[in-house]
Simulated scan of single mutants.
Amino acid sequence: MEIVLAIMIGILYAAGIYMILRRSLVKLILGIIILGNGANLLIFLLGRITKGSPPIIPGDLKVFEAAYADPIPQALILTAIVISFGLQSFAIILIKRAYKVVKTDDLDEMNAIDQDS
């Protein structure tokens, strides 16, 4: 299972970087979204995938006796999802406003319009 996730992370990173390097702002946002999903999967994979029970210690025990699921990577991923959603929302609104003003989403044309002013 880990090798499949590792390959998927590599594909998501490659696709995200490829989309970020395109000249369109919409493709830039899609690249950031794909790269964020790849980072979330990487955090999940680094937390070691184990089948186990929730990490709750009964009152009469001092340590875990069996395998348990580590909650820290899951909490980090939830935090990363919320932060990436906020970043994506802000970027989409910013791009919408830039498109409304400049009437293009091509970065080269935006740069040429900026230099003409």
Rank of each mutant, 00 (worst) to 15 (best):
G31P: 03
M8D: 01
M110K: 08
I72V: 07
M19G: 01
L12R: 04
F85E: 07
A15Y: 02
I7Y: 12
E65L: 14
Q88S: 13
L78I: 10
S24C: 11
L76H: 00
T104A: 06
M1T: 12
I93E: 07
K103A: 12
A69C: 08
I81K: 06
A112W: 11
F90M: 11
L41T: 00
I32K: 01
I56F: 13
K103M: 13
N37A: 13
D60G: 03
G31R: 02
L87Y: 14
T50N: 09
D70L: 08
L28C: 04
S89D: 12
K103F: 15
L61H: 15
L78H: 09
E109I: 07
L35S: 05
L30E: 01
M8W: 02
I56Q: 12
L5A: 05
T50Q: 14
D116G: 10
G31W: 01
F90C: 12
K100N: 14
I57C: 15
S24A: 13
A6H: 08
A75I: 02
D106F: 04
Y68R: 04
A6F: 06
V63W: 15
I34K: 00
R97F: 06
G36Q: 02
I29V: 09
M1V: 15
L28T: 02
G10S: 11
I92N: 01
L61Y: 07
G38V: 01
D105Q: 15
D70A: 15
L28V: 02
I3V: 08
D70Q: 13
P71S: 09
A98T: 07
F44V: 00
G38S: 09
A67R: 15
T50M: 10
A75T: 10
L28E: 01
I93W: 12
E2P: 02
A91H: 04
I72R: 09
E65C: 14
M110L: 12
G10A: 15
A69L: 13
G16Q: 00
K103S: 15
L21P: 14
N40G: 02
N111Y: 09
D114Y: 09
P73R: 05
I92V: 14
L78R: 06
I95A: 08
G86L: 07
G59R: 09
P58C: 08
T79I: 10
Q88L: 10
A112V: 05
Q115V: 07
N111K: 08
A75E: 11
A98C: 15
Y13C: 09
S117V: 07
L45M: 10
A14E: 05
Y18I: 03
G36N: 07
G16S: 05
A66C: 06
N40P: 00
M19S: 08
G31D: 12
A112P: 03
M19D: 02
L30H: 03
D70G: 09
E109M: 10
Y68K: 07
S84L: 13
G10Q: 10
A112M: 10
A75R: 06
L28Q: 04
I11P: 00
A75F: 03
D114K: 13
L35G: 01
G59Q: 13
L28R: 02
L87G: 00
R23D: 04
L28Y: 04
K96A: 10
I81N: 08
Q115Y: 15
R22Y: 03
N37F: 14
A39K: 15
G52K: 05
L42M: 06
F44K: 02
I3T: 05
G86R: 05
Q74W: 08
D106W: 01
S24M: 06
I29M: 03
